[in-house]
Simulated scan of single mutants.
Amino acid sequence: MSRVSPLSQATLSLSRARHGLAPWARIAGLAVCALLTLGPVVWTVSTSLRTPAEAFDLPPRLIPSNPSTEAYRGVFDQIDVWLLALNSTLVTGLVAVGQMITAGLAGYAFARLEFRFKKPLFGLVLATMMVPLQVTIVPVFLVLKSMSLTDTLLGLIIPAFPTAFGTFLMRQYFLGMPKDLGEAAMLDGAGPWRTFRSVYAPLAAPGLAIVGVLAFNYHWNEFFRPLILETSGQNYTLPLGLVSLQGNLGTGSISVVLAGVVLSMIPAVAVFVVGQRPLREGITSVGVNR
């Protein structure tokens, strides 16, 4: 009958301890990450429900003693929330749809079509990701001014249609699809456009959903471009309109400012929750195909 050496016993015990500790360590790590991520959000919502006098209580309390929605009424009294939300919805919705279209077409072209200077052009597209927005805003402003599109919502929408990241993402997505599908469609007489529209585009729906959700969340919170391109209050987006609430900081009404922040977060959170499933499926399918 074989005997287990003390060294083997120690190694086995250590391995069992690691396996027993690993799940708890992961849970603890995820809990810390969740606390760091959701902590500021919870604190923002909590402070928005406080009265101005209670907002600066020491020591601070997470749960307000007398929750009130007066701060939210103050937001609607001071700014036209519905107009700002409508402008933001039009801009971000159209930009998201436009980026889904341009990223899908460009990604398919770089992945499945053959043409001259294909690799240098794709490298040029990727190079634009390294150019800060602040560098291109002046030429974009001059072009829009020559087209009489400054201080219009179209001036925010049209320049945002091209997306280098979306093109790269969709190219990788199309590269992960079998070539046999496109070749079979071409043998049946389908051209490149018909092959894309009838074969590849439906299969790329999860990838396009990723582009759309990311574009919506980014442009919903965008502040710099609207600040430069928009001058009339009727064309302000929600993040730009919320700046007018900063005057409440001088009077101690920080609850009104944070109530506006909470209102601006609701659509972005709703889109993320609705698009979470296709987003997860798209990322998973890209990893499996690659």
Rank of each mutant, 00 (worst) to 15 (best):
V140Y: 06
V140R: 11
V140A: 08
F141Q: 10
F141V: 03
F141T: 09
L142N: 12
L142K: 12
V143H: 12
V143I: 15
V143F: 13
L144N: 14
L144G: 12
K145I: 01
K145M: 05
K145T: 08
S146N: 11
S146W: 02
S146T: 06
S146Y: 03
S146A: 10
M147I: 03
S148D: 07
L149Y: 05
L149Q: 11
T150L: 02
T150I: 02
D151K: 10
D151T: 11
T152G: 08
L153G: 06
G155P: 14
G155K: 09
G155R: 10
G155W: 10
L156H: 14
L156M: 11
L156R: 11
I158D: 01
I158G: 05
A160R: 14
A160V: 09
A160M: 14
F161V: 15
F161M: 14
F161G: 07
F161D: 02
P162K: 09
P162L: 10
P162N: 10
T163Q: 13
T163G: 15
A164G: 15
A164L: 13
G166N: 11
G166Y: 13
T167P: 15
F168W: 14
F168R: 04
L169N: 10
M170C: 13
M170D: 10
M170V: 12
M170I: 13
R171H: 05
R171D: 13
R171A: 14
Q172C: 04
Q172I: 02
Y173N: 03
Y173V: 08
Y173L: 07
F174T: 02
F174Y: 03
F174S: 03
F174K: 01
F174R: 00
L175E: 14
L175V: 04
L175T: 03
G176Y: 00
G176T: 04
G176M: 01
G176R: 00
M177R: 01
P178M: 04
P178Q: 03
K179Y: 05
D180K: 08
D180M: 07
D180Y: 00
L181W: 00
L181C: 08
G182W: 00
G182L: 03
E183M: 13
E183W: 02
A184M: 02
A184K: 06
A184W: 00
A184Y: 00
A184P: 11
A185W: 00
A185E: 01
M186C: 14
L187A: 13
L187P: 08
L187Q: 08
L187G: 11
D188F: 00
D188E: 07
D188V: 00
G189A: 04
G189W: 01
A190W: 05
A190R: 13
A190E: 05
A190I: 06
A190P: 14
G191N: 09
G191Q: 07
G191I: 09
G191F: 10
P192R: 02
W193R: 06
W193V: 14
R194M: 12
R194G: 05
R194I: 07
R194Q: 14
R194V: 12
T195P: 04
T195D: 02
T195A: 05
F196D: 01
F196A: 04
F196E: 00
R197I: 04
R197M: 07
R197C: 09
S198G: 08
S198A: 14
S198D: 11
V199S: 09
Y200I: 09
Y200L: 10
Y200W: 06
Y200D: 07
